[in-house]
């Protein structure tokens, strides 16, 4: 049965994020009043923080995962970690834990235990900073993802299949990415094919579509390409969607979002990074 491999230090899995850093990512999300690039950087940093904490044990962090963040924009395509992880593609989660570029103090509102809220200071590690410049070399980004994932699978042939989460707000400016997307989703470990999420985000979130099946009517040829390139959501992810987000998705639901606001993008990332529940 696919997607049933144990995730352990002897058999780790991986997550790869492919992030659009083109100029249009500097537009503000209407709902949060913050540029898309900044809001997404916060989401990625928080996700990394949560993954580190999930893998932390009393003796340190167990390497259940390798994680990579690839950015594409004005500077072409490349790894997007800052600090001492700069230039690295896939990094073991313990190395991520011990090497944030910096740790910021942020204010968080928490319950005061008497029905009110108080501000409290929390540590917020930063690995990935926002960038928004230039074009959208999406095809090259998928080519890079294919190389990284092929290397990973050759060393980890029995792993729980890698999950690739691609977040964009625009159209490819370097040609049709279809072939590279298909190549990516045809890569597989002995436990199943790579799972590709195509998450399209929009500052105003007009007519959002999330996890649709084949019956969906899409507004343009470009969104059809992203829809066609995305993987079918495996049943365990549909179960997470149902149990934790109340989303009842059909068998044909795809790992695809169109015009999603930041909350919908967060939901999709939560669903996509949930193989972490199978840690042993």
């Amino acid at each position: 049965m696919a997607y049933s491999a144990e995730i352990s230090r002897n058999n780790p899995s991986c997550f790869l994020f492919v992030i659009d850093q083109s100029g249009s990512m500097s537009d503000n999300y209407v709902s949060v009043g913050k540029p898309k690039s900044e809001a997404l950087a916060d989401v990625i940093n928080r996700m990394l923080q949560q993954l580190v904490i999930k893998c932390a044990k009393s003796e340190g962090v167990r390497d259940y995962y390798n994680v990579g963040v690839i950015g594409y924009g004005a500077n072409g395509v490349g790894p997007a970690f800052g600090g001492s992880l700069s230039g690295k593609n896939l990094v073991p989660i313990s190395e991520i834990a011990n090497n944030p570029a910096r740790i910021e103090e942020r204010t968080k509102r928490v319950s005061d235990g008497a029905g009110g809220l108080v501000d409290t200071s929390v540590k917020f590690p930063i690995w990935f900073d926002p960038t928004a410049n230039g074009g959208t070399p999406m095809t090259e980004a998928f080519r890079k993802a294919n190389t990284i994932i092929a290397d990973w699978l050759s060393s980890n042939p029995n792993c729980f299949p890698p999950v690739v989460i691609h977040i964009t707000d625009g159209e490819s400016t370097d040609g049709d990415p279809t072939e590279e997307m298909n190549k990516l989703t045809s890569q597989a470990s002995n436990d199943g094919n790579v799972i590709l999420f195509n998450l399209h985000t929009n500052a105003r979130s007009v007519n959002p579509i999330s996890f649709p099946g084949p019956e969906v009517q899409l507004p343009d040829h470009y969104s059809e390409k992203l829809f066609n390139g995305a993987s079918l959501l495996p049943s365990f992810m549909r179960n997470v969607a149902a149990q934790e987000f109340g989303l009842n998705l059909s068998d044909g639901a795809k790992a695809f979002v169109l015009n999603g606001d930041i909350d919908l993008i967060i939901t999709a990332i939560e669903i996509g990074t949930r193989p972490s529940l199978q840690l042993r």
């Binding site: 923080q49 580190v52 904490i53 932390a56 009393s58 340190g60 962090v61 834990a97 011990n98 740790i103 540590k123 590690p125």
Partner: peptide
Amino acid sequence: LPWYAQQKLEN
């Protein structure tokens, strides 16, 4: 403990 172990411990 390092930052992640402290945060984990809070749970």
